[in-house]
């Protein structure tokens, strides 16, 4: 059976960038946010790779990516992501930072998905990252699921297998364990953790073909119209954690190891 997979995923600052909040009249933003290089949100990227993996196993499957992000930045990020697998991009132009409200974002995403013609709930899988690298709430996928009427939602998913049409899912739970659940059929929502698939290599033909449809979609992207009503972030600061580091040089390994042993046991 083919699947109609929708992956929700935003963009996040390239992981090694130094981040600093800056308060503005509309609340905090990242200092130099538009200057920071961005990547597709890491856990959402894993969701996308898993979607590609699933789609390969079930011919006729489709992948769409619904993204709320500033479209100029999104376009740049897509130049990397679009080379990895074929998908349709449904961009929504709006702020992509962490200080937006997960509740409102989930409404916008759910509306965008509801507007897609031809969705068949019996084939429908909602994918996304467990938590974004920006807001990190872990709320958006379950809320989008609920707004779309999906009752079966899985969080921190590391594995999906299809067995006789049923979805067998492993989720991370407490104590380093994985919970195994069997969902009889779609629709279902899966918010992915790391999964087990490597990043697919870039494929220029795929990228070029994807971009033919993506650029017009980006040019047409509608503004998200986030109002931020009823939500504010009055404070955002860098944590101040400075320690007095003792730097130990020129000590033999044997001595260091004795000191470490004492410390570990102490």
């Amino acid at each position: 059976m083919p699947y109609q997979i929708i992956v929700c995923g935003g963009i996040a600052p390239d992981p090694l960038q130094t981040l600093e909040p800056a308060m503005g009249p509309a609340g905090p933003a990242l200092k130099n946010e538009m200057m920071l290089p961005a990547v597709f949100d890491p856990w959402a990227a894993h969701a996308l790779y898993e979607a590609a993996h699933l789609a390969r196993q079930f011919p006729g499957s489709s992948i769409r990516v619904v993204t709320l992000a500033p479209k100029a930045k999104l376009q740049q990020v897509m130049m990397t992501v679009a080379q990895k697998l074929p998908f349709e991009l449904i961009p929504i132009d709006g702020p992509g930072g962490g200080f937006t409200d997960a509740v409102e974002v989930s409404k916008v995403l759910a509306q965008a998905i509801s507007a897609i013609p031809g969705i068949d709930m019996s084939q429908f899988l909602l994918f996304g990252g467990w938590e974004s690298a920006t807001r990190g709430s872990g709320c958006v996928i379950p809320m989008v699921a609920a707004r779309l009427g999906i009752e079966d939602c899985f969080l921190a998913v590391d594995e999906l297998k299809i067995e006789d049409g049923a979805l067998v899912i492993k989720e991370r739970v407490e104590g380093g364990l994985l919970q195994v659940s069997r969902c009889s059929a779609p629709p279902a929502a899966l918010a992915w953790a790391t999964g087990s698939l490597p990043e697919p290599p870039n494929h220029p033909q795929t990228g070029m073909a994807n971009m033919r449809a993506m650029m017009p979609a980006l040019q047409r992207a509608k503004p998200a119209g986030l109002t931020g009503e009823g939500f504010s972030v009055p404070q955002a600061t860098l944590p101040a954690q400075q320690r007095q580091t003792q730097v130990v040089k020129d000590k033999p390994a044997a001595e260091i190891s004795r000191e470490l042993l004492e410390w570990i046991k102490g």
Partner: peptide, 11 residues
């Protein structure tokens, strides 16, 4: 926020 890199308050 931002993977434990910025702390903030929400109202």
């Amino acid at each position: 926020f931002y993977r434990q890199r910025i702390e903030g308050t929400v109202a």
